[in-house]
Nucleic acid binder design. Sequence first.
RNA 1: GUCCCCAUCGUCUAACGGUUAGGACGCCAGCCUUUCAAGCUGGUAACCCGGGUUCGACUCCCGGUGGGGGCACCA
Length: 490
Amino acid sequence: MTVRTRIAPSPTGDPHVGTAYVALFNYCFARQNGGEFILRIEDTDRERSTPESERMILDALRWLGLQWDEGPDVGGPYGPYRQSERGAIYRQHVDELLAKGHAFRCFCSTERLDALRLEQRAKNLPLGYDGHCLALSPEESERMAADGVAYVVRMKVPRAGQCLVKDLLRGDIVFEWSQVDMQVLLKADGMPTYHLANVVDDHLMGITHILRGEEWIPSAPKHLLLYGYFGWDAPQLCHLPLLRNPDRSKLSKRKNPTSILFYERMGYLPEAMLNYLGLMAWSFPDERDKFTLQEMVAEFDLERISLGGPVFDLTKLNWLNGRWIRESLDIQQYAERVRQWALNSEYLMAIAPLTQQRVERLSDLGPLTLFFFSGYVNPSPEALVGGKLDADAVRRVLDALTRRFDALVAWNRDAIDAVVRAVAAELGLKLKDMLKPVYVTITGNPSGVPLFDAMAILGKDLCRARLRQARAALGEAEEEEEPETEVAAG
RNA sequence: GUCCCCAUCGUCUAACGGUUAGGACGCCAGCCUUUCAAGCUGGUAACCCGGGUUCGACUCCCGGUGGGGGCACCA
């Protein structure tokens, strides 16, 4: 049997390094075994999925060089590879479960479910559906559905006994069925949930091995149960350790740059990114720390994955990236990479209109545009609070901007303008006063080219990173004064 | 709260019953060098705790502790 693995990202935001990390392992495992690597888009969340996000994720994975054999863009024998286009398939499988009595319609309102959860939490009971609609007879259920009463479909779960999950890395994991929730399989909008869609698709697409994040371990029993309900053999499961923030929590954009786009704009080479990701939880047999994707494929071995969650620490990535730049590129290739990175005509043409009126000599361009060719600009706390706002006000401005920019989908001049004005209004500040520290945050200087245009060109990821850096430079709000210390010191 | 996963230098990791616990990043020092890098050399630093099993435990078992994740009509 041909080994088939997949990466199944949800197009609900920026391309995440965690996606690249899991994709890398799936890619290596498939290639190592002469198998196939599939890309599937899990866009069953109608609210949050966007085509734009899907495009960015595909571009990012391509940039890294993780080429898939089948996917929404290249097609393949098991398509469509976009879950939103497989509605009929899920519907059919839900009907099958309903007919076999493995699933039931649930007409409970969200209000009732919220109240139930609240009560369970208050009483310190395990959270989960209480089986209310299980009492409905099939006839009643049919009639209500026919009458147009909104419902979801939930899976039935045994009330007693245990479920054995076999994990390639962790061995046997035992769960009590009593603690497994009666998961929703089909949402009220007719879309399947992840649990149903991933089982149906993995089976139909012939996936033999599922390498996914550790966060999925608790839902494995549900998936196994579904495979059983359908009478299918389940794929091998393998849960990879999660990438961590420096504080060891799950990697998150609040604490770390998580967008692959950030690393690209920052000037990391895709070879180095992949190499570094390969160093996370996995090690080369001879312990070398620099290797290509091809070398990793050749030597890949699940056994060499360590289970402690690795901290995604930029210092070693920096060192590795430096090695790739100076050891693996000749001087022409290096120059070409620099050109592709920022000295390309598209980028230059975006910057040119902002600078033409502001230079007397072409050489004025250097200091004026330095921040366009930098990652971080390292503003000092003094420069940030130099204007009319005190440190605390600047902190609030940076926090509010970060929060609103995160929610912004379209990153362009007008949208940025609107956000900044909204924050000024929210905090009751004059736009002019507020702009000063923001200008320093983004450009590292007190004045220069128009800010909003500059931010639009710079991109969301670099702006976000600079906001965080400036915020960090200011530290936390001052503690209560400690006059004693002052007096004693005097 | 509850269920599950995990545990070697600050960080990434090696070790798969017997090693002075190895390597890499970072940091420190020296060398090299017109500066700075790079490079080279050396140094710093770890087996979470307590019980077992064993002639012998970082390695196996149990219990603590600690960290993490899940507990959505999000994936």
